[in-house]
């Protein structure tokens, strides 16, 4: 009988559970062109809010394939989104209250087709039950660019 160290058992168990959840970590790709600032507060001492972004690639037929998730648990996170092709971003705000008795999950979803040489600054904010996501495009020379409008997946075949 093989005896494993307790730590190894816990790690194996955690890995097994993570695989069952269906959520995988988005690979760290370069160049990093999406910079996300996150501000989240539930508005209640008994509640909490977690923010993440699920990233999907979109093919020519507008079908999505889930690539992974980035946990936005730091005030600023840099992400690499493939340029010159559409990706589908799902910003998720997960809130729970009073020992998890009540939970809520709400999304902000948008198509994003980053242009090569440009960077994108996103702000994902949740405060007291109001959430807001805005993405701005900045030029290669750092010039402040336009706000990128939210686009539904159904608009993927329109440039």
């Amino acid at each position: 009988m093989i005896r494993l160290p307790r730590a190894a058992v816990w790690l194996l168990g955690a890995g097994f559970l993570a695989g069952c959840s269906g959520i995988k970590t988005y690979p760290d790709t370069s160049p990093r062109n999406l910079f996300v600032k996150t501000e989240a507060r539930s508005g209640s001492a008994f509640g909490s809010v977690r923010v993440s972004v699920h990233i999907h690639q979109v093919d020519a037929s507008c079908r999505t394939e889930y690539l992974g998730t980035v946990q936005l648990n730091e005030p600023a996170v840099a992400i690499g989104i493939p340029p010159d092709r559409p990706s589908y971003l799902v910003f998720n705000f997960y809130s729970s209250s009073f020992l998890g008795a009540s939970t809520g999950s709400i999304n902000y979803e948008t198509l994003l087709r980053p242009r090569a040489g440009y960077t994108y600054d996103a702000t994902a904010r949740y405060a007291d039950g109001i959430y807001f996501v805005v993405i701005r495009e900045s030029g290669a020379r750092g010039s402040t660019g336009r706000e990128v409008s939210q686009r539904a997946l159904s608009a993927c075949d329109r440039r």
């Binding site: 809520g104 949740y126 007291d128 039950g129 959430y131």
Partner: peptide
């Protein structure tokens, strides 16, 4: 949350969306 969001839109001071799970 819905009232606050709509007031934010009307005033232009906050364009955020209400968390309808609340």
């Amino acid at each position: 949350v819905i009232y606050r969001a709509i007031i934010g839109w009307a005033t232009g001071k906050d364009l955020g969306c209400p968390d309808l799970t609340k």
